[in-house]
Write a protein that binds this DNA or RNA. Structure first.
Length: 419
RNA sequence: GGAGAGAUGGCUGAGCGGUUGAAAGCACCGGUCUUGAAAACCGGCAAAGGGGCAACUCUUUCCUGGGUUCGAAUCCCAGUCUCUCCGCCA
């Protein structure tokens, strides 16, 4: 979210910067409301001062007047509340402004490749998709999940379930012991306010699973990513400069409605309502965001390098970035069955955008209280990594070789095969 | 589910109708002392919003929302959350 104070300073520049995003914001209304709002605040404050002064004199003859003022204040204050709510509504629906590094573009076709790594496997047999491999092994069961739950869920069984767990532990260990992140095991439900903090609400409510609770209690949502709950660790806080940067990592299930992607990736476990993901979150001094983004992205690619999976690193264009991001790298892994790269991680700097929403601040060297910078990145999406391992390490007989680094996490199993 | 206790600044914690934005301590920052550090002593130290080029100034804020009052951190009502004890379940 943007600070109205900052926008006011240079309204034109703000408007221009947002054009890259192709969002329709009623700037005229924003400007008018801002002026009205401030006028009302001034009126209100003048009256409040008058009332306060009377109270200080303790002069009984003025008490009647004070009472009148109170009525007036209430009237103005109500108007002001309405206007400031309108303002907040407009402001909270404005996305972050893309950093100047970000290429202009409409959609994913305009993303720019910045790096490519690893060797694409060449099979001397007809390769299979992960769901063919998994179903043949009897270790992926989509039909069963449909029966028990519904579409876009899956049962993972046997050695593949072990592989999934191994991936989680391997990634966590790498980020904890090598990359300096603190492990967190967070709640999987988030309050409305928490969801607002990272930008999932109010604009993207239809993508979230909400838990049905008794009437009158606070709303709660299943987290669509651990980013939500990890970033909000610093909500409403003024952090000691010395404790920055904060780096958190968690492996959690994620829940997404995937509204608007009907008919997309319906086969297999590419796009599920529930999936595991290892998520990294960094809280940094605001001017260190971009450096941290490079660092974090390297932590993500580190995993793919260790697993020896081929991938490429993309910088997202302005039109393809998430609501809260100022700059995003996507890491895409090679999937033989689709003969293309698919997203396996997304690392974003959100500058102070989320921090403003969360009221997360720190005192800088000059003792000014300012908003922190927040970053988040997958390191990595476990479900998709599982797919990538299956497809890239598949053998002619339908078995799957386990990447060396994962074997210690799997009782030194070298290969997953029938029986 | 039953019975109590509580929610105050970065933290701990006093205040329980009128200069209280809020004692004290810790933390932090500056200074004196010291070869340096520690200790000791002195001083500083809330946030949000409005106005002003600025120095500065005004308003709001003691969980949230109502109420009483000329005036509320302090009194009343409702709600949320936390803690303790008992029960129940993992």
């Amino acid at each position: 979210m943007y600070n109205l104070k900052e926008i006011r300073k240079n309204f034109g520049a703000f408007k221009k910067a947002l054009e890259k995003r192709a969002v329709d914001v009623d700037f005229k209304k924003l400007e008018t409301l801002d002026v009205e709002n401030r006028e009302l605040i001034q009126k209100k404050e003048a009256l409040e001062k008058e009332k306060k002064d009377i109270s200080k004199t303790k002069d009984k003859s003025l008490f009647v007047k004070s009472k009148e003022i109170s009525v007036n204040i209430e009237k103005i204050s109500n108007q002001q509340t309405i206007i400031s709510e309108k303002l907040k509504k407009i402001l909270s629906n404005i996305p972050n402004i893309p950093h100047t590094d970000v290429p202009n573009g409409r959609d994913e076709n305009d993303n720019v490749e910045v790096k490519k790594s690893g060797n694409i496997p060449k099979f001397d047999f007809k390769s299979k998709s992960h769901y063919e491999l998994g179903e043949n092994l009897g270790m992926l069961d989509f039909d069963l999940a449909t029966k028990t739950t519904g579409s876009r869920f899956v049962f993972v069984k046997g050695a593949l379930a072990l592989l999934e767990r191994a991936l989680s532990n391997f990634m966590l260990d790498t980020h904890i012991y090598k990359n300096g992140y603190q492990e967190v095991s967070p709640p999987l439900l988030a309050s409305e306010n928490t969801m607002f903090g990272t930008g999932q609400l109010p604009k993207f409510e239809k993508d979230q699973f909400e838990i049905k609770l008794e009437e009158g209690t606070d709303r709660k949502f299943l987290i669509p990513t651990a980013e939500v709950i990890l970033t909000n660790i610093v909500k409403d806080k003024i952090i000691d400069l010395k404790s920055l940067p904060l780096r958190f990592v968690a492996s959690t299930p994620c829940f997404r409605k995937e509204a608007g992607s009907y008919g997309k990736d319906t086969k297999g476990m590419i796009r599920q309502h529930q999936f595991y993901k290892v998520e990294m979150v960094s809280i940094v001094e605001q001017e260190k965001c971009l450096d941290e983004l490079e660092r974090m992205t390297n932590c993500a690619t580190d995993i793919l390098d260790l697993l020896e999976l081929p991938y490429r690193k993309m910088i997202l264009c302005s039109g393809d970035m998430g609501f809260s991001a100022e700059k995003t790298y996507d890491i895409e892994v090679w999937l033989p069955s689709e003969n293309k790269y698919r997203e396996i991680s997304s690392c974003s700097s959100c500058s102070t955008f989320q921090a403003v929403r969360m009221k997360a601040r720190y005192k800088n060297i000059n003792k000014e209280t300012i908003n922190v910078g927040t970053l988040n990145g997958s390191g990595l999406a476990i479900g998709r990594t599982l797919i990538a391992v299956m497809e890239n390490y598949q053998q002619k007989d339908g078995s799957i070789v386990i990447p060396e680094k994962l074997r210690p996490y799997m009782n030194n199993l070298e290969k997953i095969s029938l029986k």
